[in-house]
Design a protein around this nucleic acid. Structure first.
Lengths: 213, 213
DNA sequence: GTCTATATACGGATAGAC
DNA sequence: GTCTATCCGTATATAGAC
């Protein structure tokens, strides 16, 4: 049983906002997005003004509005890119492992490591109340990465690794504990990184849903 | 083993804001707080203006500022009262049951029923990003009710019901799944109330931490 | 205690030079 | 593409009559 959850991924802090355009423009867009991520998670979306963003990024308001339609558009772009990056990583994990057990464990391990190496990413994606500033976004539990995780679990139920039960309940039982630990870490309640507890929480989680022998 | 988690409590919707002052003043304060709770959970704190509150409550801005120092003070008062009401209920549950198993199950069951009968309460307490508008509040995981829950679990570890392990991990494993289900319900992902799944999620949760026989 | 009217500030967004 | 200066709506909070 392979408990290594790495399987050659990009280090989380390398997560970038790059797409396919001119690198000069990209640098500035990325600067704006990275600064926005920091401020949004630090003080919250509504406590961050465009003037804050302008000051912290060291560029002008005009430049910001040249690259983005509005403040909301910055948050939306940020949200989409981070979700996409996370989903890409989960897809890679899905390809590297072939049982629900190994896939979900690797996924949880990676999410925990991400919450340590890039807490702002985790906080913005998992924790922010997007509905309040991105009214058209679906709730996070319906986002692509979460759907993928749910699918992994459904497959495990089909092939007999996981006891048959309501899929939402199984997802909550298997990942709820780990996600809760991540939240505790982001809130500063844990002493060390959440991933210190991966082995233990995974043991608990797997007991809760595994097919009896 | 007693699986009844009720044990004579006030129905959650009866949760009121009453204290000890003149009932006439109370009615108005309660009206303001109840309206604020509805609007804050509905549109979010920052998307709710004092004018919205004034309109929805059917009173004047002057009246609002007569009873509360500021908008933030309304949110703070709301937060404290709801946390206190929840903790009072948990205390009652603690008194009615005498094992970690029964206490935690009853507590989770009650929280799930509360999330159905009074979703706004649950949403505001469990889900809102208080740090963004109540900067002096400690994080929710450090609040009185959560401390109480943690204590119940610690006791269960001491008396041998629960396997010895890190307390944060045990809390996450035992309650993380249920809390996650509550979040799913609040986000509208579940079809019915989360409490429909109490038996199942509790069975999963308890397996994950229970002492082996 | 409750009301209306208003002061004051701030935030998002735009105009237009360079 | 980037900048500065500015517009304008809105939000919190206050003043002061009743």
């Amino acid at each position: 049983m392979n408990h290594d959850f790495r399987c050659s991924w990009q280090h989380p802090t390398m997560m970038t906002f790059a797409t396919v355009k001119d690198p000069k423009v990209l640098k500035k867009q990325e600067l704006i997005l990275a600064t926005a991520l920091r401020l949004f998670t630090d003080k919250g979306y509504f406590n961050t003004s465009i003037h804050d963003l302008q000051r912290e990024a060291g560029i002008s308001i005009g430049a910001i509005y040249h690259h983005f339609r509005s403040k909301e558009a910055i948050a939306a772009e940020l949200f989409h890119r981070l979700l996409q990056a996370i989903d890409a990583q989960l897809e890679q994990i899905q390809d590297c492992h072939h049982s629900a057990h190994d896939r979900c464990r690797a996924a949880l391990g990676w999410l925990m490591s991400l919450s340590h190496t890039s807490p702002a990413t985790m906080q913005f994606v998992l924790y922010a109340r997007h509905r309040e500033f991105l009214p058209d976004e679906p709730p996070i539990c319906s986002s692509v990465p979460f759907i993928r995780l749910k699918r992994m679990i459904a497959d495990g139920m089909d092939n007999g690794e996981i006891r048959p039960m309501d899929l939402n309940v199984a997802s909550a039982a298997l990942l709820g504990g780990g996600i809760r630990l991540i939240q505790l870490q982001l809130d500063g309640v844990l002493d060390g990184p959440a991933s210190d507890h991966l082995d233990l929480i995974w043991d608990c989680a797997w007991r809760s849903v595994a097919m009896e022998n």
